[in-house]
Design a protein around this nucleic acid. Structure first.
Lengths: 150, 150
DNA sequence: GTAGGACTTCAAGTACGCTTGAAGTCAAGG
DNA sequence: CCTTGACTTCAAGCGTACTTGAAGTCCTAC
Protein backbone atom coordinates (compact mmCIF):
# COMPACT_ATOMS: atom_id res chain seq x y z
CA UNK A 1 0.00 0.00 0.00
CA UNK A 2 2.60 2.52 1.04
CA UNK A 3 5.71 2.91 -0.97
CA UNK A 4 8.92 4.83 -1.27
CA UNK A 5 9.65 7.13 -4.17
CA UNK A 6 11.71 4.43 -5.83
CA UNK A 7 8.84 1.97 -5.90
CA UNK A 8 6.40 4.58 -7.10
CA UNK A 9 8.79 5.63 -9.83
CA UNK A 10 9.17 2.08 -10.96
CA UNK A 11 5.44 1.45 -11.01
CA UNK A 12 4.73 4.67 -12.85
CA UNK A 13 7.54 4.23 -15.31
CA UNK A 14 9.14 7.50 -14.29
CA UNK A 15 12.41 8.57 -12.76
CA UNK A 16 12.31 9.44 -9.08
CA UNK A 17 13.61 12.88 -9.97
CA UNK A 18 10.60 13.44 -12.19
CA UNK A 19 8.28 12.69 -9.30
CA UNK A 20 10.11 15.13 -7.05
CA UNK A 21 9.83 17.65 -9.81
CA UNK A 22 6.10 17.12 -10.14
CA UNK A 23 5.77 17.69 -6.44
CA UNK A 24 7.85 20.81 -6.67
CA UNK A 25 5.68 22.34 -9.36
CA UNK A 26 2.51 21.44 -7.52
CA UNK A 27 1.24 18.56 -9.61
CA UNK A 28 1.54 16.11 -6.79
CA UNK A 29 0.53 16.89 -3.22
CA UNK A 30 3.42 16.72 -0.75
CA UNK A 31 3.34 13.18 0.58
CA UNK A 32 3.79 12.04 4.15
CA UNK A 33 7.31 11.54 5.41
CA UNK A 34 8.95 8.81 7.42
CA UNK A 35 12.22 10.04 8.83
CA UNK A 36 12.70 12.40 5.97
CA UNK A 37 11.75 10.03 3.18
CA UNK A 38 8.60 10.44 1.16
CA UNK A 39 5.94 7.82 1.65
CA UNK A 40 3.29 7.52 -1.05
CA UNK A 41 -0.06 5.81 -1.10
CA UNK A 42 -1.84 4.28 -4.06
CA UNK A 43 -3.58 7.53 -4.92
CA UNK A 44 -0.20 8.97 -5.80
CA UNK A 45 0.02 6.40 -8.57
CA UNK A 46 -3.48 7.35 -9.71
CA UNK A 47 -2.37 10.94 -9.88
CA UNK A 48 0.61 10.01 -11.97
CA UNK A 49 -1.61 8.07 -14.31
CA UNK A 50 -3.84 11.08 -14.80
CA UNK A 51 -0.78 13.22 -15.41
CA UNK A 52 0.53 10.73 -17.96
CA UNK A 53 -2.80 10.72 -19.71
CA UNK A 54 -2.94 14.48 -19.86
CA UNK A 55 0.61 14.65 -21.16
CA UNK A 56 -0.26 12.14 -23.83
CA UNK A 57 -3.19 14.33 -24.75
CA UNK A 58 -0.88 17.29 -25.25
CA UNK A 59 -1.16 19.28 -22.06
CA UNK A 60 1.92 20.94 -20.63
CA UNK A 61 2.64 20.51 -16.94
CA UNK A 62 1.48 24.04 -16.32
CA UNK A 63 -1.79 23.30 -18.03
CA UNK A 64 -2.22 20.07 -16.16
CA UNK A 65 -1.93 21.99 -12.93
CA UNK A 66 -4.66 24.31 -14.12
CA UNK A 67 -6.70 21.27 -14.97
CA UNK A 68 -6.27 20.01 -11.43
CA UNK A 69 -7.02 23.39 -9.94
CA UNK A 70 -10.18 23.38 -12.01
CA UNK A 71 -11.21 20.18 -10.34
CA UNK A 72 -10.91 21.60 -6.89
CA UNK A 73 -12.71 24.93 -6.92
CA UNK A 74 -15.22 24.45 -9.62
CA UNK A 75 -18.45 26.02 -10.64
CA UNK A 76 -20.95 23.44 -11.85
CA UNK A 77 -18.50 20.50 -11.58
CA UNK A 78 -16.08 19.56 -14.26
CA UNK A 79 -16.86 22.60 -16.35
CA UNK A 80 -13.46 24.18 -16.13
CA UNK A 81 -11.43 21.23 -17.26
CA UNK A 82 -13.85 20.63 -20.06
CA UNK A 83 -13.23 24.14 -21.26
CA UNK A 84 -9.50 23.59 -21.16
CA UNK A 85 -9.80 20.29 -22.96
CA UNK A 86 -11.94 21.81 -25.66
CA UNK A 87 -9.43 24.59 -26.15
CA UNK A 88 -6.66 22.04 -26.33
CA UNK A 89 -8.56 20.10 -28.93
CA UNK A 90 -8.68 23.20 -31.07
CA UNK A 91 -4.96 23.68 -30.63
CA UNK A 92 -4.28 20.10 -31.54
CA UNK A 93 -6.36 20.38 -34.65
CA UNK A 94 -4.43 23.47 -35.66
CA UNK A 95 -1.29 21.51 -35.09
CA UNK A 96 -2.57 18.75 -37.29
CA UNK A 97 -3.07 21.27 -40.06
CA UNK A 98 0.45 22.50 -39.50
CA UNK A 99 1.78 18.97 -39.81
CA UNK A 100 -0.14 18.57 -43.01
CA UNK A 101 1.55 21.65 -44.41
CA UNK A 102 4.89 20.15 -43.51
CA UNK A 103 4.06 16.98 -45.34
CA UNK A 104 3.08 18.90 -48.42
CA UNK A 105 6.20 21.04 -48.31
CA UNK A 106 8.41 18.01 -47.93
CA UNK A 107 6.80 16.14 -50.76
CA UNK A 108 6.97 19.21 -52.93
CA UNK A 109 10.64 19.63 -52.15
CA UNK A 110 11.29 16.00 -52.96
CA UNK A 111 9.56 16.35 -56.31
CA UNK A 112 11.58 19.40 -57.29
CA UNK A 113 14.93 18.65 -58.82
CA UNK A 114 16.97 21.18 -56.88
CA UNK A 115 20.63 20.48 -57.15
CA UNK A 116 22.19 23.78 -56.32
CA UNK A 117 21.45 25.55 -53.09
CA UNK A 118 21.21 29.13 -54.17
CA UNK A 119 19.13 28.23 -57.18
CA UNK A 120 16.49 27.11 -54.71
CA UNK A 121 16.56 30.49 -53.07
CA UNK A 122 15.88 32.19 -56.36
CA UNK A 123 13.08 29.77 -56.95
CA UNK A 124 11.48 30.84 -53.73
CA UNK A 125 11.74 34.49 -54.55
CA UNK A 126 8.85 34.28 -56.94
CA UNK A 127 6.42 32.94 -54.40
CA UNK A 128 7.86 34.20 -51.17
CA UNK A 129 4.53 35.59 -50.13
CA UNK A 130 3.11 32.16 -49.64
CA UNK A 131 5.44 31.49 -46.76
CA UNK A 132 4.58 34.69 -45.04
CA UNK A 133 8.06 35.94 -45.70
CA UNK A 134 8.43 39.63 -45.40
CA UNK A 135 5.15 39.70 -43.57
CA UNK A 136 6.80 39.82 -40.15
CA UNK A 137 4.00 38.00 -38.42
CA UNK A 138 4.56 38.47 -34.73
CA UNK A 139 5.51 35.35 -32.83
CA UNK A 140 2.38 34.69 -30.90
CA UNK A 141 3.04 31.29 -29.47
CA UNK A 142 -0.29 30.61 -27.91
CA UNK A 143 0.12 26.98 -28.77
CA UNK A 144 2.22 26.47 -25.68
CA UNK A 145 2.80 22.80 -26.02
CA UNK A 146 4.04 22.85 -29.59
CA UNK A 147 6.93 25.15 -28.94
CA UNK A 148 9.60 22.81 -30.11
CA UNK A 149 8.15 22.73 -33.56
CA UNK A 150 7.10 26.17 -34.60
CA UNK B 1 21.62 45.39 -54.18
CA UNK B 2 23.69 45.67 -51.04
CA UNK B 3 22.00 46.15 -47.73
CA UNK B 4 22.60 46.47 -44.03
CA UNK B 5 21.37 43.91 -41.54
CA UNK B 6 18.38 46.07 -40.76
CA UNK B 7 17.15 46.11 -44.33
CA UNK B 8 17.74 42.41 -44.76
CA UNK B 9 15.88 41.70 -41.55
CA UNK B 10 12.97 43.77 -42.73
CA UNK B 11 12.83 42.11 -46.12
CA UNK B 12 13.09 38.64 -44.65
CA UNK B 13 10.62 39.32 -41.90
CA UNK B 14 13.12 38.47 -39.21
CA UNK B 15 14.79 40.29 -36.34
CA UNK B 16 18.34 41.43 -36.94
CA UNK B 17 19.40 39.41 -33.93
CA UNK B 18 18.05 36.28 -35.59
CA UNK B 19 20.21 36.92 -38.63
CA UNK B 20 23.29 37.37 -36.48
CA UNK B 21 22.37 34.17 -34.75
CA UNK B 22 22.07 32.29 -38.05
CA UNK B 23 25.47 33.52 -39.00
CA UNK B 24 26.86 32.45 -35.65
CA UNK B 25 25.58 28.90 -36.01
CA UNK B 26 26.83 28.64 -39.57
CA UNK B 27 23.59 28.88 -41.51
CA UNK B 28 24.60 32.09 -43.19
CA UNK B 29 28.08 32.72 -44.56
CA UNK B 30 29.85 35.65 -42.86
CA UNK B 31 29.05 38.65 -45.01
CA UNK B 32 31.39 41.40 -46.13
CA UNK B 33 31.93 44.32 -43.75
CA UNK B 34 31.99 48.03 -44.25
CA UNK B 35 33.60 49.73 -41.29
CA UNK B 36 32.46 47.02 -38.99
CA UNK B 37 28.91 46.70 -40.24
CA UNK B 38 27.70 43.68 -42.15
CA UNK B 39 26.85 44.22 -45.79
CA UNK B 40 24.62 41.66 -47.45
CA UNK B 41 23.87 40.93 -51.07
CA UNK B 42 20.68 39.54 -52.54
CA UNK B 43 21.82 35.95 -52.15
CA UNK B 44 21.65 36.42 -48.42
CA UNK B 45 17.93 36.94 -48.78
CA UNK B 46 17.71 33.82 -50.93
CA UNK B 47 19.45 31.91 -48.21
CA UNK B 48 17.00 33.16 -45.64
CA UNK B 49 14.12 32.12 -47.85
CA UNK B 50 15.49 28.62 -48.10
CA UNK B 51 15.95 28.54 -44.35
CA UNK B 52 12.40 29.72 -43.82
CA UNK B 53 11.11 27.06 -46.15
CA UNK B 54 13.06 24.34 -44.37
CA UNK B 55 11.83 25.55 -41.00
CA UNK B 56 8.29 25.48 -42.26
CA UNK B 57 8.90 21.93 -43.37
CA UNK B 58 9.95 20.97 -39.87
CA UNK B 59 13.73 21.02 -39.94
CA UNK B 60 15.64 22.30 -36.95
CA UNK B 61 18.43 24.77 -37.53
CA UNK B 62 20.96 22.05 -36.89
CA UNK B 63 19.33 19.91 -39.53
CA UNK B 64 19.16 22.77 -41.97
CA UNK B 65 22.87 23.19 -41.63
CA UNK B 66 23.32 19.53 -42.44
CA UNK B 67 21.07 20.06 -45.42
CA UNK B 68 23.33 22.86 -46.59
CA UNK B 69 26.47 20.88 -45.93
CA UNK B 70 24.94 18.15 -48.06
CA UNK B 71 24.63 20.56 -50.92
CA UNK B 72 28.27 21.46 -50.87
CA UNK B 73 30.17 18.19 -50.77
CA UNK B 74 27.79 15.81 -52.38
CA UNK B 75 27.98 12.50 -54.07
CA UNK B 76 25.66 12.24 -57.11
CA UNK B 77 24.14 15.70 -56.55
CA UNK B 78 21.29 16.38 -54.26
CA UNK B 79 21.26 12.88 -52.87
CA UNK B 80 22.11 13.79 -49.33
CA UNK B 81 19.41 16.36 -48.80
CA UNK B 82 16.92 14.07 -50.40
CA UNK B 83 17.80 11.44 -47.84
CA UNK B 84 17.33 13.92 -45.05
CA UNK B 85 14.04 15.12 -46.43
CA UNK B 86 12.76 11.59 -46.77
CA UNK B 87 13.73 10.86 -43.19
CA UNK B 88 12.00 14.03 -42.09
CA UNK B 89 8.88 13.02 -43.93
CA UNK B 90 8.81 9.80 -41.97
CA UNK B 91 9.22 11.76 -38.74
CA UNK B 92 6.44 14.09 -39.69
CA UNK B 93 4.14 11.25 -40.48
CA UNK B 94 4.89 9.72 -37.11
CA UNK B 95 4.08 13.05 -35.58
CA UNK B 96 0.80 13.15 -37.42
CA UNK B 97 -0.07 9.82 -35.90
CA UNK B 98 0.84 11.19 -32.51
CA UNK B 99 -1.44 14.16 -33.04
CA UNK B 100 -4.20 11.81 -34.00
CA UNK B 101 -3.77 9.98 -30.73
CA UNK B 102 -4.05 13.26 -28.90
CA UNK B 103 -7.28 14.07 -30.66
CA UNK B 104 -8.72 10.72 -29.74
CA UNK B 105 -7.65 11.04 -26.13
CA UNK B 106 -9.13 14.48 -25.87
CA UNK B 107 -12.42 13.48 -27.38
CA UNK B 108 -12.54 10.44 -25.18
CA UNK B 109 -11.89 12.56 -22.13
CA UNK B 110 -14.60 14.98 -23.13
CA UNK B 111 -17.08 12.17 -23.54
CA UNK B 112 -16.32 10.72 -20.12
CA UNK B 113 -18.21 12.30 -17.28
CA UNK B 114 -15.33 12.66 -14.85
CA UNK B 115 -16.17 15.02 -12.07
CA UNK B 116 -13.75 14.01 -9.38
CA UNK B 117 -10.06 13.97 -10.00
CA UNK B 118 -8.96 10.88 -8.18
CA UNK B 119 -11.82 8.88 -9.59
CA UNK B 120 -10.25 9.41 -12.96
CA UNK B 121 -7.00 7.94 -11.73
CA UNK B 122 -8.79 4.81 -10.61
CA UNK B 123 -10.43 4.65 -13.98
CA UNK B 124 -7.07 4.63 -15.65
CA UNK B 125 -5.73 1.87 -13.44
CA UNK B 126 -7.63 -0.72 -15.38
CA UNK B 127 -6.11 0.12 -18.71
CA UNK B 128 -2.81 1.64 -17.70
CA UNK B 129 -0.95 -0.64 -20.06
CA UNK B 130 -2.31 1.18 -23.05
CA UNK B 131 -0.45 4.30 -22.13
CA UNK B 132 2.81 2.49 -21.75
CA UNK B 133 2.72 3.21 -18.05
CA UNK B 134 5.00 1.06 -16.03
CA UNK B 135 6.77 0.09 -19.20
CA UNK B 136 9.57 2.57 -18.61
CA UNK B 137 10.24 3.11 -22.28
CA UNK B 138 13.54 4.89 -22.50
CA UNK B 139 13.30 8.43 -23.78
CA UNK B 140 14.79 8.05 -27.21
CA UNK B 141 14.03 11.38 -28.72
CA UNK B 142 15.11 10.73 -32.27
CA UNK B 143 12.34 12.99 -33.42
CA UNK B 144 14.50 16.00 -32.69
CA UNK B 145 12.17 18.65 -33.92
CA UNK B 146 9.15 17.59 -31.93
CA UNK B 147 10.76 17.94 -28.56
CA UNK B 148 8.35 20.45 -27.19
CA UNK B 149 5.52 18.02 -27.47
CA UNK B 150 6.64 14.63 -26.33
C1' DG C 1 30.17 69.64 -32.45
C1' DT C 2 26.83 67.02 -31.13
C1' DA C 3 22.61 64.37 -31.05
C1' DG C 4 20.43 60.45 -33.12
C1' DG C 5 19.95 56.13 -35.05
C1' DA C 6 21.70 51.95 -36.63
C1' DC C 7 25.03 49.17 -36.03
C1' DT C 8 28.81 46.22 -33.19
C1' DT C 9 30.14 42.46 -29.43
C1' DC C 10 29.45 39.58 -25.55
C1' DA C 11 27.00 37.66 -21.75
C1' DA C 12 23.03 36.37 -19.88
C1' DG C 13 18.07 35.43 -19.93
C1' DT C 14 13.71 32.84 -21.59
C1' DA C 15 10.63 28.59 -21.55
C1' DC C 16 10.00 23.53 -20.67
C1' DG C 17 10.75 19.24 -18.31
C1' DC C 18 13.47 17.16 -16.32
C1' DT C 19 18.46 15.16 -15.17
C1' DT C 20 22.80 15.27 -12.93
C1' DG C 21 26.06 16.11 -9.37
C1' DA C 22 27.57 17.09 -4.82
C1' DA C 23 27.11 16.46 -0.17
C1' DG C 24 24.63 14.74 3.47
C1' DT C 25 21.15 11.47 6.13
C1' DC C 26 19.10 7.16 7.43
C1' DA C 27 18.07 2.21 8.41
C1' DA C 28 19.29 -2.43 7.77
C1' DG C 29 22.69 -6.23 7.24
C1' DG C 30 27.11 -8.46 8.03
C1' DC D 1 30.94 -0.60 13.63
C1' DC D 2 30.76 0.22 9.21
C1' DT D 3 29.38 -0.37 4.59
C1' DT D 4 25.75 -0.27 1.28
C1' DG D 5 21.90 1.50 -0.96
C1' DA D 6 18.14 4.33 -1.16
C1' DC D 7 16.87 8.30 0.03
C1' DT D 8 17.32 13.78 1.03
C1' DT D 9 18.27 18.92 -0.63
C1' DC D 10 19.94 22.43 -3.56
C1' DA D 11 22.08 24.26 -7.51
C1' DA D 12 23.31 23.91 -11.94
C1' DG D 13 23.00 21.96 -16.61
C1' DC D 14 20.76 20.52 -21.15
C1' DG D 15 18.78 21.73 -25.80
C1' DT D 16 16.37 24.92 -29.05
C1' DA D 17 16.05 29.41 -31.10
C1' DC D 18 16.44 33.31 -30.23
C1' DT D 19 15.94 37.97 -27.45
C1' DT D 20 17.55 41.39 -24.33
C1' DG D 21 20.72 44.42 -22.17
C1' DA D 22 24.92 46.86 -21.58
C1' DA D 23 28.53 49.31 -23.44
C1' DG D 24 30.80 50.88 -27.25
C1' DT D 25 31.41 52.49 -32.43
C1' DC D 26 30.13 54.80 -36.65
C1' DC D 27 27.97 57.91 -39.97
C1' DT D 28 24.69 61.56 -40.93
C1' DA D 29 22.17 65.53 -40.18
C1' DC D 30 21.49 69.77 -37.95
Amino acid sequence: MEMTIGKLAERAGLAASAIRYYEEVGLLPPPARASGRRVFGEQALDRLLVIAFAKEAGFSLREIRQLFDGFASDTPAGTRWRKLATAKLVEVEALAARIDTMKHLLREALRCGCVELDACGKLFRARAGRLGLGARRKQRRSVEFAKGML
